[in-house]
């Protein structure tokens, strides 16, 4: 068994949280630049210009890209030959998250669902993080992280379609969700689509789809083709950057497809704003 110390996880997570808040990853940056080149609307082009300038200011002056520094979402792959010493994995990730959000001057955005009271005193600064853990082979821990803003989560939707609705039904549902969302999720967006599995499997797949490098196609050529088709359809909506009208609404569509029950066709759409703040580390 390879041993990994609790404190090392805390430190690595903290550094990742601070870095991600101010550094737009290369893949998102590249997609924004491409959109800026292709955009036909002068108003939307100006918005994209501001976003590129914003990323530059954030990086050089270490200011958060967006005031919504998100809820911390993690997908963690733990090698089964790893032993964590000195504490629990979830506690280490939460502790690193809290330290990162405090030391990076990021916003504490978790609150009680009904009273809306901020939970920074009761539970911890921007805690709890949302943590998905999977056990895999090997002796390493891989931690994938996203700072997920509220605006794009608010327009995300899941539905279980009838099997007869099929491929076309999925396209219609995704189009409806993005059309209805309009300017609200801060376009240009990345769209994660989870198809199949059970209700929750579809939802988690749609979230995990957003952790892929922007524009990286699904390894299954049929699914990759479906991604292209969806991207083309969604950009016909004309929503444009910040909803002011334009040709570049969606930067990428990522689809994750799972086998499903003979009676069901679950589909989930999770939206990522243009500030696609994600990062990963391997320990």
């Amino acid at each position: 068994m390879r041993e990994i110390a609790y404190e090392d996880i805390v430190k690595a997570v903290k550094n990742m949280v601070i870095h991600t808040a101010t550094n737009l990853p290369e893949d998102a940056m590249k997609k924004l630049q491409e959109a800026h080149e292709k955009e036909k609307s002068p108003v939307a082009k100006k918005v994209l210009e501001q976003l590129l300038e914003n990323a530059e200011i954030a990086r050089t002056e270490k200011r958060p890209l967006c005031q919504d520094t998100g809820l911390a979402v993690y997908f963690v792959k733990v090698g089964q030959d790893v032993k964590i010493t000195g504490g629990l994995l979830k506690d280490a990730i939460n502790e690193g998250t809290e330290q990162g959000y405090i030391e990076g001057y990021l916003r504490a955005s978790t609150c009680d669902c009904f009273t809306r009271e901020n939970l920074k005193e009761k539970i911890g600064y921007n805690l709890p993080a949302v943590i998905h853990i999977d056990l895999v082979e090997g002796d390493k821990i891989e931690i994938e992280y996203a700072a997920k803003g509220g605006g794009s989560e608010n327009v995300s939707r899941a539905r279980v379609l009838a099997p007869a609705q099929g491929r076309e039904g999925v396209i219609d549902f995704v189009k409806d969700v993005i059309s209805e969302a309009g300017p609200n999720p801060c376009p240009p967006i990345i769209v994660g689509v989870g198809i199949g599995g059970t209700f929750e499997k579809a939802a988690i797949s749609s979230k995990y789809a957003l952790f892929r490098e922007a524009g990286q196609p699904n390894p299954d050529p049929d699914v990759a083709e479906f991604e292209k088709e969806l991207l083309f359809e969604l950009n016909k909506l004309g929503i444009g950057a910040m909803g002011m009208g334009g040709t570049e609404t969606v930067l990428a569509v990522h689809v994750e497809k799972n086998p499903c029950h003979i009676a069901s066709l679950p589909v989930s759409v999770n939206v990522q704003c243009h500030s696609s703040r994600h990062s990963h580390i391997t320990l």
Binding site: T22, Q50, E61, P64, L65, C66, Q67, G149, C273, S275
Partner: peptide, 10 residues
């Protein structure tokens, strides 16, 4: 512009 928090904050 949503998500231009660094620029607007300045």
């Amino acid at each position: 512009t949503g998500g231009a928090g660094a620029l607007l904050g300045k």
